[in-house]
Every structure is written in structure tokens, then in C-alpha cells.
């Protein structure tokens, strides 16, 4: 799994590539600590390179969300593939952070609330 983080003031953009299975979730957890320490206000995670995410990976996202929400930061997921997008919507996670589907896919969609 490749984890790239670009901090630009209050904005932090994270590009993740690979598969987030059980092992990847642990790696994600470690890398998310960097995000915490960056004190960004708006965290955007680019899901373009993520082909698979399991429940553990989703759990780590929610941990990050809670940590960000504590200090008033927002989390949004962009360029989410259709399959992961449907999964997250079925879980109603779009109710707590913004999830936007990848635009190169037909019928791309943006749903969910902005921020928290």
C-alpha cells in the first residue's frame, strides 16, 4: 500500500494506492497518526488508487473521522470507485462524511453530507 500525504496549510490531501485489507488497515492506522499530528482542518482522502477495502479499513477511516471530528476537522472521500461507493452508502457512512464517486465512471455521483 502506498500512502502519500500532502499538507497545504489547513488542507491535507492523502492519496492511497493499493488494497486495504486487514494488514493494510493496520498500516493505515499508523499512517493516519501522521494526519492527526498535522493538525489539518480539512482532510481529503483520494480513493483513486484503492481497489479494495475491507471492514477493517473502513473501521480505520471511522477512527480517523472521530479523531478529526473531535478537533472540528472535516473528512471527505473523493474518487471513490463505484463498488466501494455503494458499499459505503449501504453502510450509511455518507451520512457522516462526504463521499464522492469517481467522475470518470458513468453516472458518477456525489452524495452525503458535507463535513460532519
Amino acid at each position: 500500500m502506498i500512502f502519500n500525504m500532502i499538507v497545504n496549510g489547513d488542507d491535507c490531501r492523502i492519496a492511497i494506492s493499493g488494497e486495504i485489507d486487514e494488514r493494510g488497515a493496520e498500516e493505515l492506522k499508523k499512517r493516519f497518526r501522521e494526519v492527526q499530528s498535522s493538525q489539518c482542518r480539512r482532510v481529503t482522502i483520494d480513493f483513486k488508487g484503492i481497489s479494495h477495502i475491507g471492514s477493517a479499513g473502513i473501521g480505520k477511516l471511522l477512527v480517523l473521522y472521530k479523531d478529526l471530528a473531535v478537533r472540528g476537522a472535516a473528512l471527505q472521500l473523493v474518487n471513490v470507485s463505484r463498488t466501494i461507493y455503494r458499499l459505503l452508502c449501504e453502510m450509511k457512512l455518507n451520512a457522516i462524511f462526504s463521499i464522492s464517486e469517481a467522475t470518470n465512471q458513468p453516472g458518477g455521483n456525489v452524495c452525503g453530507t458535507a463535513g460532519h
Binding site: S55, G59, L62, V63, Y65, M91, I96
Partner: peptide
């Protein structure tokens, strides 16, 4: 039910949901 509002932000408990889905 992980989709219940009170369970939305729980980091675990979604495995069965995914399986059923």
C-alpha cells in the same frame, strides 16, 4: 445493525453487514 445511527461511527461490527449485503 451498523447502519443504526448510534452505531455509525463504531470502527468495527460491519463484517456481517457486508456479508449480508
Amino acid at each position: 445493525d451498523p447502519t443504526a445511527f448510534e452505531n455509525l461511527v463504531k470502527p468495527s461490527g460491519r463484517g456481517l453487514f457486508i456479508i449480508r449485503m
